[in-house]
Design a protein around this nucleic acid. Structure first.
Lengths: 350, 350
DNA sequence: TTGTAAGCGTTATCAC
DNA sequence: GTGATAACGCTTACAA
């Protein structure tokens, strides 16, 4: 689709370095140097130039700079969805780091779709990002090819990829869910149900589900109580809907393990409105440690994941990879994010 | 801070249009035309060129394109914080629209700081955005100057600016809070307290506070029950903290009106843990209609704001401004977003 | 410390 | 329908 700003389709002339140079009676190069704090320019000329820069409100055109230096200053960043405080927080923390490094984030959301991810990457590559950050949720073969050909560091987040494209930062969702499930079994729960999205192929939600199944089967228990509902990201409302079907889904269950805190809160809400007591009648467990689960009543047991920390550490990894003076060979290929189980009021201690 | 990818500091050579042209036995221009669907190229040559493009995995460098066409394809977008589902949803909705128009979002968060906003705008202007979207929370004089000089459409969101820089889309926070307060008074509440951030100068939170005060005073009631706590964005946890000081703050109040749903949920949680009944002992009201307030118990009365709709309509406004074929003079300078009061269980109907 | 010249990779423009 | 040439605004590399 074509765009224009002016009816006559001629963009307004911009103020260029040449204009500043002329006004200051120097060459473009001197202006260019005056704007870089570490370049050799006499203090007087620099002062004079900067004064003119301010007077003319000159703003350098970074497209031209990029073309010349072959450094875009972009960090391509993909998230599954912003509509999830976890991802939003990690993006915000990462963005704060990027600003310090002098990188501008290019943000896109995949909507948990590998095809959308492929399109986004394709379009972002036109901007020549210096690093690519994306969630590990399974990529298309073409995505992987594009990533490798981009010839810049690739960082996969939120998982421990079996076949990493480049760097990775995260934790094993399978392990985490398995650990929580085992802990629940240890606390005496036997008929645990699992709540997750309906279309979660390749997502980390599916890994959690598999971890749950493995833990149950290893303990000789049945993992047949599976409720699949709602497209990713599964919401509070989806959880409420599921919880409203208590008799159908959970009549013989003693615990409901949800793929994230959002549906856990919704399930809790639905159970409450049916006068079903938590944890006396049935326990509810989430995943992610969203703020809401610390203040609901009862508070929700969950798997604590430090989203801000993940974002911040991603930024630090990028700094080590891109900023001068680091031995790139010494940078770890994977950074493990700790998760811990947090038992609160929605499960009984038994 | 300087960056490099390679130890030798020489970026890898990229595949250029020239490479494709050579392989296809045509000139660069023909390749360029073949890649634009609406340019005149014979079907055969186009097919041949596209085949080579795919084989070489050629990705055009948009920096060069931008330099030539003077169109960056960027939409600078600022939000106060992503750590707020409202903003996150509006950003996501806007981003979906932008993709259709063929614009790439440049995202930054101001953290409710006018100085940060100024720095962000300054840095984004280097990318020559074709449109600038930002929250109305009061700008520095320099920010306003920068915005005007940018010579592109500016869209302020979430308020009805008294002195708009360009276009605007939103609603009057003052009016909305005033309306809710009046409705609460009509329902019999007299000693209403207001909960808001501690440092909210220039923010929309302050406008809500002022609307509350005006409504109280107009009704001959005292607006002295003000609790200010937590930096923006005020969180669930801040609300919990405030609610925990029930005796200190709310002993003689009959209703707590919170500047957003997040602290309202926190207040509710704290009251519950002190065995204070809502709405029997005291009512609680929020602002924004976050998902959580529809599923808490009791459900929270609030001012409904359609964040996704605001994002979507911002995108539509941009389309009208930038896409060919629209008479720009016919585009409204302000788009009003409807808000409605939603009374739920946390207030009694009286 | 400053300047000159030659690109960076693309597209607008004008020929043919 | 296709090509040659000249920008676009900046920085690298080298010279003075």
């Amino acid at each position: 689709m074509s765009r224009n700003n002016k009816p006559d389709n001629k963009p307004a002339a911009q103020i260029t370095m040449e204009d500043v140079a002329r006004a200051a009676g120097v060459s473009r190069m001197t202006v260019s140097r005056a704007l870089k704090s570490d370049s050799p320019v006499s203090p007087e000329t620099r002062a004079r130039i900067l004064k003119i820069v301010r007077k003319l409100n000159y703003v350098p055109d970074q497209s031209a700079g990029t073309l010349s230096t072959r450094r875009s200053g972009f960090a391509a960043t993909l998230v599954p969805s912003l509509n999830n405080l976890h991802f939003a927080e990690s993006v915000q923390a990462l963005n704060e780091q990027l600003e310090q490094i002098g990188l501008q984030m290019l943000l896109g959301h995949t909507g948990y779709s590998a095809e959308r991810e492929e399109r986004l990457i394709e379009s972002m590559l036109k901007r020549r990002p210096e690093v690519i950050v994306l969630p590990f949720d399974g990529h298309t073969p073409r995505t992987i090819k594009l990533l490798k050909q981009a010839n810049v560091p690739v960082i996969e987040q939120w998982e421990v990829p079996s076949k990493p494209v480049g760097y990775s930062i995260g934790f094993s969702n399978w392990q985490a869910a398995r650990k929580m499930t085992s802990a629940l079994i240890e606390r005496g729960y036997r008929n645990i149900a699992f709540v997750s999205e309906s279309e979660d192929a390749w997502t980390r939600g599916a890994a959690r589900r598999a971890g749950f199944e493995d833990a149950m089967q290893s303990a000789g228990l049945s993992a047949h109580r599976m409720v699949r509902y709602g497209k990713p990201p599964i919401s509070i409302e989806d959880g409420y809907h599921i919880g409203s079907g208590y008799k159908e889904h959970f009549a013989d269950a003693d615990c409901i393990f949800c793929v994230s805190d959002a549906p856990a809160f919704g399930v809790l809400s639905a159970l409450k409105s049916q006068q079903i007591r938590v944890p006396e009648d049935i326990a509810v467990v989430g995943f992610g440690n969203f703020e809401v689960s610390r203040f609901s009543s009862p508070t929700i047991s969950t798997v604590e994941v430090d989203a801000r920390g993940l974002g911040r550490q991603t930024g630090e990894l990028i700094r080590r990879l891109l900023v001068d003076g680091t031995d790139i060979a010494s940078v770890p290929r994977h950074i493990e994010i700790d998760v811990r189980l947090s038992f609160r009021e929605s499960t009984s201690s038994m």
